[in-house]
């Protein structure tokens, strides 16, 4: 069932993010900036760019090896979210049929090029997010947001939400299981049962919010959420972001790949 899979994923990613590797120990702020710069660089390529995108996979390869992230997990995740993008991208070859070049006498259209360009951009951006989240704890990310001046209320309730997703998802799972046990072979949840189930869960959640508020009050809550002091960026963090930004710049604007390939080809000849 869909539910179990999503729930499992959430817990799995969460656990990955608490590993102890070089990448995990880099400051969250630095990783967030790196990821955003990476995504913008990838998406700023012209719509027919395919080959110049490929070097960008090096970030993934590097983090997967160093950050100890199972590659199968990333691939599965990409497949799960791919339908929408495929649905949109598949139209490009049909609407854009001008021939770009001939590959062994087979005409390759611009639509096909842009189709592959979208797919590669998709894989690159999705996987970099998975890598970011599986090497950075959620509270680390929220800490980074706070440093980037994201409004306090947003960050605070984001932390609350993340904390209780696990609790409520488990509660929901128990309710779904109990329902499934009693509904025998019927597939899926009927709308009216769903409404009751969700309504029940909502009541329980609001009751829980009440109890949490009570717990907060009894520990002196006065409307402000305390949070950690700001840490200074260390040398490894600065080195990391410097390398990342230089690499992104290099791959985006200098296309070193072409010249390197030309050089090797010349050597071979």
């Amino acid at each position: 069932m869909n539910f179990d899979r999503e729930f499992f994923n959430l817990g799995y990613l969460d656990r990955l993010s608490y590993k102890d590797t070089i990448i995990h120990n880099i400051d969250a702020r630095v990783k967030v900036i790196g990821a955003i710069a990476y995504i913008i660089a990838v998406l700023s390529f012209p719509k027919y760019a395919v080959i110049p995108l490929i070097p960008f996979f090096s970030f993934q390869i590097f983090s997967i090896i160093i950050g100890e992230i199972p590659i199968s997990f990333i691939i599965k995740r990409i497949f799960v979210v791919s339908p929408f993008i495929l649905f949109i991208a598949i139209f490009n070859p049909f609407f854009d049929r001008n021939t770009a070049f001939y590959l062994f006498n087979i005409p390759i259209s611009y639509g096909i090029l842009s189709f592959f360009s979208i797919l590669i951009k998709f894989v690159l951006t999705v996987s970099i997010i998975i890598i970011l989240i599986s090497t950075t704890s959620f509270s680390g990310l929220c800490y980074a947001m706070r440093c980037f001046k994201v409004p306090e209320i947003f960050v605070n309730q984001l932390l609350f939400m993340y904390r209780y997703i696990f609790v409520l998802a488990e509660e929901a799972m128990r309710m779904v299981r109990a329902k499934e046990l009693r509904s025998f072979n019927k597939k899926g949840l009927e709308l009216k049962f769903y409404v009751k189930l969700a309504g029940n869960l909502l009541i329980r959640s609001l009751n829980r919010a009440e109890r949490i508020y009570y717990a907060m009050l009894s520990r002196g809550y006065n409307g402000n959420m305390p949070y950690n002091k700001r840490k200074k960026l260390g040398f490894p963090d600065l080195l990391f972001i410097l390398i990342i930004l230089i690499m992104i710049y290099f791959f985006r604007f200098l296309e070193p790949v072409n010249s390197m390939g030309r050089f090797i080809l010349r050597l071979i000849r």
Partner: peptide, 25 residues
């Protein structure tokens, strides 16, 4: 007061921050 369900009491992102919640307040 220690509540019946510790999930209601532990609302901060890490153990340390949770135990520090009262003293900071």
């Amino acid at each position: 007061v220690v509540f019946q369900n510790p999930d209601d009491q532990l609302f901060m992102p890490t153990v340390y921050e949770d135990v520090a919640f009262g003293p900071i307040n």
